[in-house]
Design a binder for these strands. Structure first.
Length: 360
DNA sequence: AGCATTTGACCCAT
DNA sequence: ATGGGTCAAATGCT
């Protein structure tokens, strides 16, 4: 462990915890309809905490130490590993060298993974043409043991042309058939999904269509995304965190986009970040093109990517992971909220987490 | 013709 | 041995 990072990590955790506590206070205040001033103050404090945390993350940069490939996609969300991927890893590579196949498989396994739960409304059922700006191609469907509905497998259309290894799985919920659990793996590296989305067919769709930002510029927008995400109720799921996959699952409440948008206008993160593009970073409800599976995001994939990547970037697995996995094992629940540590871990609010040596 | 989906088979991890 | 994930030929659609 690097001492410098330990210290920053401690501060980071401290800031995050503080932000979480403040958010809880805010929630209480909202429940009790407190004054707007105190609410604003809390919001500012929360934002300040997360900003600090983000700055810590940002200035640390990628961990230079050789790491397992699980975090190679720290900035782009998709591994930029030297592994040679030719898009046809199976039969072709088998002939050439089985090593390649293994590495491809390994790479795929290491892709960050997160899950989004989305609810299908009758409206979206009818619209049927929602798009998240990314182009998916279905490559498989399987009946899953114990699941009522089959699971569908999608990959980025531009896997071969742009070496984009993003995939997603869509699984209809047994309990609530209107809910689709979408598991994403890897972030898009293709330009298509993140360039300006083609003009929508109707003004209504324009409202739902996101202008996806370019992945290459993701870094600039990460902070905005994260702040916005947090402000709108970030949920972190550990689905898939089976102690091998490090990427936490980020789930955003399926709030209506109208609400998100209107709220966002008043969101000003202390002037440090230009949030003028935040609106554009959100993806609309969508339906996978030409598929029978309905799904839509409540928040853009890139947002979830970004946050997961931020947490992964530095591979400071120990503490954040520790917090998460500890709870996972304690509850044995596949899904849990990020706010668990504050409920289950007794923290002295006055404790100085950035005390040198605390995390070493 | 070109692209997407379907679906049985295969591979791999457990 | 089994289940999940992926491939790729067959088929469908535009």
């Amino acid at each position: 462990m690097e001492h410098g990072w330990n210290w920053k990590q401690g501060t980071l955790v401290s800031e995050l915890i503080q932000g979480m506590e403040l958010a809880k206070q805010l929630r209480l205040q909202l429940d009790s309809a407190s004054s707007a001033e105190s609410t604003d103050l809390l919001v500012q404090k929360i934002l300040s905490s997360y900003e600090k945390a983000l700055l810590i993350l940002k200035f640390n940069g990628p961990v230079p130490v050789a790491q397992p490939q699980q975090n190679v996609g720290a900035t782009s969300g998709v591994p930029e590993s030297p592994l040679s991927i030719n898009g046809s890893p199976r039969s072709d590579d088998l002939d050439k060298d089985s090593q390649d196949t293994r590495e491809v498989s390994k790479k795929r396994k290491m892709l960050p993974r997160w899950t989004d739960q989305v609810r299908v409304t009758s409206e979206s059922l009818l619209e049927g043409t929602h798009d998240d700006g990314f182009s998916w191609r279905k490559y498989g469907q399987k009946d899953i043991l114990g699941a009522k509905y089959p699971r569908s497998y999608y990959r980025c259309t531009y896997r071969h042309t742009q070496d984009c290894w993003a995939t997603k799985q869509v699984q209809r919920s047994d309990e609530d058939p209107t809910i689709f659990e979408i598991t994403y793996r890897g972030a898009h590296t293709c330009a298509h999904g993140n360039q300006g989305v083609p003009p929508p067919a109707s003004p209504k769709k324009q409202e739902h269509k996101s202008t996806n930002f370019n992945n290459n510029n993701n870094q600039q927008l990460q902070s905005q995304d994260i702040l916005f995400s947090l402000r709108n109720g970030l949920r972190v799921n550990t689905e898939g965190l089976d102690n091998k996959e490090m990427a936490p699952s980020f789930s955003f409440p399926s709030t209506s986009f109208g609400l998100l948008k209107s709220e966002n206008h008043s969101f000003s993160p202390s002037g440090v970040l230009d949030n003028s593009n935040i609106l554009n970073s959100f993806s609309p409800p969508f339906m996978s093109p030409a598929t029978s599976e309905l799904n839509y995001f409540s928040a853009s994939q890139s947002q979830m990517n970004n946050f997961g990547e931020m947490l992964n970037t530095h591979n400071s697995e120990s503490d954040l992971k520790g917090l998460i996995s500890a709870n996972t094992s304690a509850t044995n629940s596949p899904i849990m909220d990020l706010d668990f540590p504050l409920d289950q871990v007794e923290l002295d609010p006055c404790f100085q987490f950035d005390t040198p040596g605390f995390f070493s």
